[in-house]
Amino acid sequence: MGCFCSKHSRQTPGYEEPTILASETSFTVSEVEALYELFKKLSSSIIDDGLIHKEEFQFALFRNSNKRNLFADRIFDLFDVKRNGVIEFGEFVRSLSVFHPNTPQSDKIAFAFRLYDLRYTGYIEREELKEMVLALLNESDLILSDDVVETIVDKTFIDADSKGDGKIDMEEWKEFVARNPSLMKNMTLPYLKDITLAFPSFVVNSEVEDSE
């Protein structure tokens, strides 16, 4: 066996060059390298194969690898662009870039729409909205009667479905978010701007200087 230095450890399946990822995302090269530190940690928490499995993703979010959560499942599925059941490094960086403070709001709005379009129909339907509200209630301590849930879903749907055709399309979603900007709060992670401070070791080893 040869030397097991950092260069070799980077040759994991799905590894992509930080310079390329930085050129395609809101991250600098240093930030991508710092994200690799985080990725290594997450992708080795249960199965040490350089890929984030759903159980590892759940473990990172909830400190419990068996906790099922509709929204965590949705995020995982959107991050897993190749739809092969795991998140590779490139997928991780490109997807997390949506949550970067410098990423255009329009990208965040589009991502949230895909997140809530549970059945990939190109629309958020009333049934999907109710399913998500019930999922949220199921994970929280909030108890609401079915009547109240129906009222909440109806009111929101009428407000968002401006064309009144029984489904929310991307155009209506953009208008709705413009009227309710707080909905996009969790689409920005301020932490991503400080990622190099959280994971400085890789930056010290970096062979590439940021162009910024």
Partner: peptide, 25 residues
């Protein structure tokens, strides 16, 4: 009042959507 809640506002409070947990040591 719960009935006055915005459904998407409610959904956005899900722990599953709080990705900042990924960065906790």
């Amino acid at each position: 009042k719960p009935a006055a809640m915005n459904a998407f506002e409610l959904i956005s409070t899900s722990q599953g959507l709080n990705l900042s947990s990924l960065f906790e040591k």
